[in-house]
């Protein structure tokens, strides 16, 4: 489970780490030395091989929303501690620390935006906040975003990045799977599109709820997408896992995704889907959007 790795790491490898030691980064994929500022300027893609690093939520919003169009909705609610949960440290402390570092109350950023002119609600998960885990706040913000989008005639675009349901809120986190799912009904009734973007990693209770209920589901290249994590499965079957198992390209082949789209192409692709679904695409706009025939960009 990705969440497991997040807890295990003393200092998670964070592409938004600004410590002096973190000025340079060695690419996980091609071993190239990348200057961190260059990575940030390059949509968090390796400047050498294009490897997709985890993208901070704010950068994701900046990439998807038309300039100046984003109006934040999230941030007015924060997590309670219904279980008085304590492991190696109290849950409230973990929350406080993450909130201070990430400058938001929980692992989600939502708001209204236009995306190449299409009115959308964006709900972007923040993996750097408690591994993007879904507790009451994440569930509520997603549900509110879906319902408000329906009221305002906006399409919903979610960007998932999550270790799954948040253990520290126990069964209430589990219930967020149902909460986010029932809230999507409002969009369906309004015949508004819901497009789900899966990024590395999308696991557990997030994969098993709203994130796989999109009218269209796309993923970024190489993203780990699963219900049970590779480690859990390996423990169960005691065998090596197939090559590329649970990665985006593998799941595309298995019929679980509509496409795998590289980050630089993501915004245009989303705009194309939205305008086709909503019947707002005009021949002149087609030239500007420039779809990628054949799709599956790797």
């Amino acid at each position: 489970m990705a969440l497991e790795r997040w807890f295990r790491r003393k200092r998670p490898t964070r592409s938004d780490d600004n410590s002096p030691a973190g000025l340079w980064l060695k690419c996980d994929e091609c071993n190239a030395q990348i200057y961190r500022k260059d990575l940030e300027k390059n949509l968090y893609l390796c400047t050498e091989c294009g490897h997709h690093y985890k993208m901070p939520a704010d950068a994701r919003v900046a990439m998807l929303a038309d300039a100046g169009s984003f109006e934040r909705w999230s941030g007015t609610i924060k997590g309670a501690d219904p279980l008085a949960f304590e492991d190696t440290e109290p849950y409230v402390k973990r929350l406080e620390r993450a909130a201070e570092r990430q400058k938001r109350p929980d692992a989600i950023l939502t708001g209204a935006a236009s995306l190449q002119g299409e009115p959308v609600a964006l709900a972007v998960m923040d993996f750097f906040f408690a591994g993007g885990s879904m507790g009451s706040v994440v569930g509520e913000e997603i549900a509110r975003a879906a319902e408000r989008a329906a009221r305002e005639g906006r399409s919903l675009v979610t960007v998932a990045a999550s270790g799954g349901a948040r253990m520290q809120e126990g069964a209430l986190s589990l219930m967020q799977m149902a909460k986010t799912t029932v809230a999507l009904e409002a969009l369906s009734r309004a015949k508004l599109p819901f497009i789900s973007v899966l990024t590395d990693p999308t696991t557990g209770g997030v994969t098993a709820s709203f994130a796989t209920l999109g009218d269209i589901i796309v993923s970024e290249p190489q993203a780990l997408i699963c219900f049970a994590g590779p480690r859990v499965i390996q423990q169960t079957i005691k065998q090596d896992l197939p090559e590329g198992f649970q990665r985006a390209e593998f799941l595309l082949q298995k019929g679980m995704l509509d496409d795998v789209v590289t980050r630089p192409n993501l915004k245009a692709r989303l705009a194309l889907y939205l305008s086709l679904l909503r019947g707002t695409l005009t021949p002149t706009a087609t030239a500007a959007v420039g779809g990628e025939p054949g799709g599956a960009a790797v």
Binding site: V137, G139, K179, T181, V182
Partner: peptide
Amino acid sequence: RFRNMGRLESV
């Protein structure tokens, strides 16, 4: 029943 699940606080 399911929409109201969870515990929240105001910021």
